[in-house]
Computed example of a mutant assay.
Amino acid sequence: MFNELFLLAADGSLGAASRPIAPHVVVLWGTAVLVVGLLLFNYLTRAGTIARATVKEAVRQPVFLLLLGTAALIIVANTYVPFFSMGDDTKMFMDCGLATILICSLLLSVWTASISVADEIEGKTAMTLLSKPITRRQFIIGKYLGIVQGSLLLILIAGAIFFAFTYYKFGYDYRESGKGSLELFTWTAVSWLPMEVPMPLESRLAASLQILPGLALIFMEMTLLTGVSVAISTRLPMLVNIVSCFAIFVVGHLTPVLVQSALKDQVFVKFIAQLLATILPSLDNFNMSAAVATGKVIPADYLGLSAIYCAAYAVAAMLLAFILFEDRDLA
């Protein structure tokens, strides 16, 4: 379904009645609203106290700096390493950079969920928190949003580095291909108002802004899988959680292929494929590789649909976590 909606959004059919909103504007305003909402949650609710402690725990652990350094190192190295892609080095660089940030953010969220939820339950630390005026549901919500904020911080820092090097990489490849040189700064090429303003295709800023929808989709996928990881961590230890999330990640990206390749004359195979596609998240909806390879920009309509799908599945994962943790023996 999302593939058809993406095609409609790309053609402008979903927003034909009004001028389309620029996707980078949606991402920037959405990020600002999200950050303000998380800050209000952290300081105005009881669960926010747990969320703040979880963010500090996620940032202070060595794996945060390790993953952030790894992402930055790969992005910097890919800036100068030739891809031999016949003039599409910038697209390959963008694709590799988005994949790097996705993997690093997912590893951080799953690792933090295992440490912050599973280990605290096994080590009886959760009993200390729940002895205070904090319910089990507030505990789960606080842990979940704290893990999301820790991974969001990694995405923002790595995304800023990626944005800067994409800005530089586009001009570097443009010059190396013999097309001349581009101006370093072209502030008139884009409008920050919530309207679609034509930009020169051969612009550093236009190329850099293409990664913002990809970063937004990465955040949505991370948020969704974090909810699944937290639900699993309420009952299972770290190793099982990591393996389960890895399996869900792989199968979630293959569900469209499984459904399409299911043999029509094999009822059982078709049933299993549709069952997996229904229960497991369709993570391929958040994949931007095809758009990057074809040089297209993800429409704002598609970002909105993906956000609704992400929120619905994350809420379902949280409800499952409530059920699993409600009768969990902490003594």
Score class of each variant (00 low, 15 high):
Phe2Gly: 15
Asn3Arg: 11
Leu5Gly: 06
Asp11Glu: 07
Ala17Pro: 00
Gly30Val: 06
Val35His: 12
Phe41Asp: 06
Tyr43Gly: 03
Leu44Glu: 07
Arg46Tyr: 13
Gly48Tyr: 03
Ala51Ser: 15
Ala51Gln: 14
Arg52Tyr: 06
Arg52Ile: 06
Arg60Gln: 10
Pro62Met: 04
Phe64Tyr: 11
Leu65Cys: 12
Gly69Asn: 09
Ala72Thr: 12
Leu73Phe: 11
Phe83Tyr: 14
Asp88Glu: 15
Asp88Ala: 15
Asp89Glu: 12
Cys96Ile: 06
Ala99Glu: 01
Leu102Ala: 08
Leu107Arg: 05
Leu107Cys: 12
Ser109Ile: 03
Ser109Leu: 02
Trp111Glu: 02
Thr112Phe: 06
Ser114Val: 12
Ser116Thr: 04
Glu122Pro: 01
Leu129Asn: 10
Lys132Asp: 04
Arg136Asn: 04
Ile141Tyr: 03
Ile141Ala: 12
Gly146Met: 02
Gly150Asn: 08
Ile161Pro: 01
Phe163Leu: 09
Thr166Cys: 04
Tyr168Arg: 02
Lys169Ser: 05
Phe170Leu: 02
Arg175Pro: 05
Ser177Ala: 15
Gly178Met: 14
Ser181Ile: 15
Ser191Arg: 14
Trp192Ala: 15
Pro194His: 15
Glu202Arg: 13
Ser203Leu: 09
Ala206His: 08
Ala207Phe: 03
Leu209Trp: 02
Ile211Val: 07
Leu212Ile: 02
Leu212Gln: 01
Gly214Phe: 00
Leu215Trp: 00
Leu215Asp: 00
Leu215Cys: 01
Phe219Ile: 00
Met222Ile: 04
Leu225Cys: 06
Ala231Thr: 10
Pro237Ile: 09
Leu239Ser: 11
Val240Asp: 05
Ile242Asn: 10
Val243Gln: 07
Phe246Ile: 13
Ile248Pro: 11
Gly252Ala: 11
Pro256Tyr: 14
Lys264Cys: 02
Asp265Met: 12
Asp265Asn: 15
Phe271Glu: 09
Ile272His: 03
Leu275Phe: 14
Leu276Thr: 04
Ala277Asp: 05
Leu280Val: 13
Leu283Ile: 07
Thr294Pro: 05
Thr294Cys: 08
Tyr302Val: 00
Leu305Gln: 07
Ser306Asp: 04
Ala307Val: 11
Ile308Gly: 09
Leu319Gln: 06
Phe322Lys: 03
Phe325Cys: 01
Glu326Tyr: 06
Asp327Arg: 04
